[in-house]
Nucleic acid binder design. Sequence first.
DNA 1: CACACATTGTAACAAAGTGTCACACAATTC
DNA 2: GAATTGTGTGACACTTTGTTACAATGTGTG
Lengths: 234, 234
Amino acid sequence: MRIASQANHLAPISGILAGDNVQNTPSASAERSLRTFSAKEHVFFEGDDRDSIYEVVDGVVCVYKVTSDGRRQVISFCYPGSLLGFGHADRYLYSAEVLSPATLRPYSAGALEKIVAERPDLAHSLMSFVMAELAAARDQLLTLGRKSASEKIASFLLELSRQNEEMSKDPETLQLPMTRSDIADYLGLTIETVSRNFTKLKTSGIIDLHQNTTVVICDMDRLEETASCDEERF
Amino acid sequence: MRIASQANHLAPISGILAGDNVQNTPSASAERSLRTFSAKEHVFFEGDDRDSIYEVVDGVVCVYKVTSDGRRQVISFCYPGSLLGFGHADRYLYSAEVLSPATLRPYSAGALEKIVAERPDLAHSLMSFVMAELAAARDQLLTLGRKSASEKIASFLLELSRQNEEMSKDPETLQLPMTRSDIADYLGLTIETVSRNFTKLKTSGIIDLHQNTTVVICDMDRLEETASCDEERF
DNA sequence: CACACATTGTAACAAAGTGTCACACAATTC
DNA sequence: GAATTGTGTGACACTTTGTTACAATGTGTG
């Protein structure tokens, strides 16, 4: 679940690739046509030939990996500014599924490599993007490996809240484009456990739920306490 | 737990930074003095000012993050060729503790940035290194989020085996420089669960244990089946 | 627009895998 | 040789999962 720039506060990657800097780069000209996807549509599957890299322009995309018997682990939720498939070799290393109607900008892999060769400043920004992704993945390793279900849910909501703040949105009103099942697969839990913990937070007065897809944070301090891995207080 | 080059089969990073390519780079000259560390010694702690980046030349280093109440999640075990602290901003994002007597090569962060600016080929190799780390972290997200204890232990042993193969060592005889506690913190388990699963694998004839720090894989097929998330067979 | 169906979410109860606690033994360090 | 650390095992507890049932919401069709 990432906005590009989280670690280093650089401009969203769309500013890097689609802004003035790139539009004037000849190699990119054929790659700036947008594609729209419906909810539930897959952009690509893990193992497919990696022919394009996609930038999320609008909407939310969920990227996930699957075990051989079909268990799904969501790796992250990708908001505008994220790149899908960047850094993959010949084949995609994960699958990407659209959660809400989305607009993506595809780049052919070869074209992006040419851009990077021509523009060292873009290479630097892409490196920053990948490092931010790595830092986020490592934070999530700590969450998955050591946090309880309550701590996971609270951390998840706080992450969405911080993201809203970075995008100048209300940090206390969170839109959830993903289902309980998506959240469960992101946090290494089951649907029932996610639902029980949402109910627990609601019953405790820490959050309020509007139509199951909007979370209003009523008590940010207690939510932070719940996430913080100290003594639980509700 | 990483050898550099896992995703893209490039030369280990030490070939990139310490080999012919770099020795001829003026900026690097002050950074090539080696430092040795004893087992259990910390290279740095999470939150410390990020003044150096270290390359592991010999030995094994464990990098980890900690929750506010002291729960530890090992992020990876770093073998020769790994870089510690690369991609961190002003402060270290994790702690690094030496598991076996180790030799590290420190680089000042500023010096490395200068090298990268002067040598686009090195920037490309560092990008590959970071992408390999990201791919590995994502694989571990799947392991932590969705695999059972048995599957985790089996996957861990297979990872060490693959690593041995990449380093032209015996893939069926694994040296474990880390304790059961380190393995537990890497896999999101407790010491007891790790110990019970080692015993299970041993009792089933899949592995053999010599002095608790050497694992001999007796039945690679069954170990792969155990890790593979299909029906368990022992 | 109403209805049927599919999907998603929640609640209650049972089961199980892992954690916790305690202890014994082995290996390492001082 | 004593102290410390690491490992393995057993018994019990508990958090989460699994199952079943039902409620709520969203979507498609006539």
